[in-house]
Design a protein around this nucleic acid. Structure first.
Lengths: 199, 199
DNA sequence: CATTAGTAAGTGAACGTTCGTTCATTTAAG
DNA sequence: CTTAAATGAACGAACGTTCACTTACTAATG
């Protein structure tokens, strides 16, 4: 028996991400992908059932890598502020170092494929996050709020800043580069909003 | 001379949005769009140069409508808190009442078309916003920050909450409905973070 | 007011191309 | 020797776009 070439699957996925980032889902054709990956079109169908499966599998793998990076050094028992800092920095560095993967995941999240990637990974992650949030609320380190409101306020701003950076354009359309100072400033403002006021 | 049917262009754009929301940019074919809009494929090319032009023109029109709705009752001379409240509520209601348009614009923003819709509208809007922000900083109603950091903290959370609502799924994957209470809670937290602390 | 000439809107069929996928065959590793 | 990986050619379907043609509205004409 002949074994599968693990490299081949990796190259196919990576090239698929590159094509989607450059030309959108429209621009991902199996013929072009095969050429870019240096394989026959038929070879792709050894590793994936069809085009949709390729996209979804690639999305799931990237999601897993992203969560792994996010949770490096994180522990649900951390103080609220420290846990937030770890997650912000993990995310910021991962996104800035992997702009294509970030861009691909954002396209995926805003496409109809979104509904098909409700994974085990995501479920485990949100449980951990839920623990972290409820503990922080109980400890009066965080104002009481629904988990979705917490998420939106905590992380949506970071994602938005990174998107400005990756697009190289700010809100006015002029060139934009995200620096460490802005990340820390944004985080401190978010934390100020989220922490209960001392009476 | 025979005049153009203004309805026809509107129907084509609306159906294009519906198809993109349901099936992504992949799912927008000129043949299917023609059928859905009740016209011949060739008719679409009377109103638009090609498929890309159709998408971009539709995006520009929606952007204009969105900014109009956003700025209803807004004035750059308002107090920071009141201006923020007006914009949050305008946006929230417009998005919740026009989920397809919101979804379409979000797909567009995260696609490669993004680079092609740097419009006059957007430029005017960001100038107005810039005035509002700098005035608020001068008046010590707002901590000093780059406009992109302001934007990310101010509005990204609202967009995220609306997306949860439109997808009918929260961060955990369970059903989610956004209510007025959560909008106000989120806004108050954002404002708390953005306002300078009184010493 | 009725008729007509002119013009752009609107059409269905057709174009060549590219699409996703499969198949008969070859290649290479256990 | 066996078996699955890997292939290039080929499939029908669908794609974006165009073209020769008809329709319907405007405006000039009498």
């Amino acid at each position: 028996m002949r074994p599968r070439d693990a490299d081949k699957e990796r190259v196919i996925k990576r090239k698929a991400i590159e094509m989607i980032v450059k030309h959108g889902f429209d621009g991902l054709s199996m013929h072009k992908l095969a050429k870019a990956a240096g394989v026959s079109p038929a070879t792709i169908y050894i590793y994936f059932n069809d085009r949709d499966d390729l996209i979804i599998q690639t999305g799931l793998e990237e999601e897993l890598k992203m969560f792994d990076a996010t949770l490096k050094g994180f522990d649900a028992s951390m103080s609220f502020e420290e846990g937030m800092r770890v997650q912000w920095m993990n995310r910021a560095y991962y996104f800035l170092e992997n702009p294509d993967q970030m861009n691909f995941m954002e396209q995926l999240k805003h496409s109809p494929y979104h509904h098909e990637i409700g994974s085990q990974v995501k479920s485990n992650f949100s449980k951990l996050m839920s623990q972290f949030v409820h503990k922080a609320i109980d400890n009066k380190e965080l104002v009481p709020l629904p988990i979705e409101v917490f998420w939106a306020i905590s992380f949506a701003p970071l994602y938005q800043l990174v998107k400005f950076h990756i697009n190289k354009k700010g809100i006015t359309g002029s060139p934009y580069v995200l620096d460490a100072q802005s990340i820390h400033l944004a985080l401190s403002i978010v934390l100020k909003g989220l922490k209960p006021t001392i009476q």
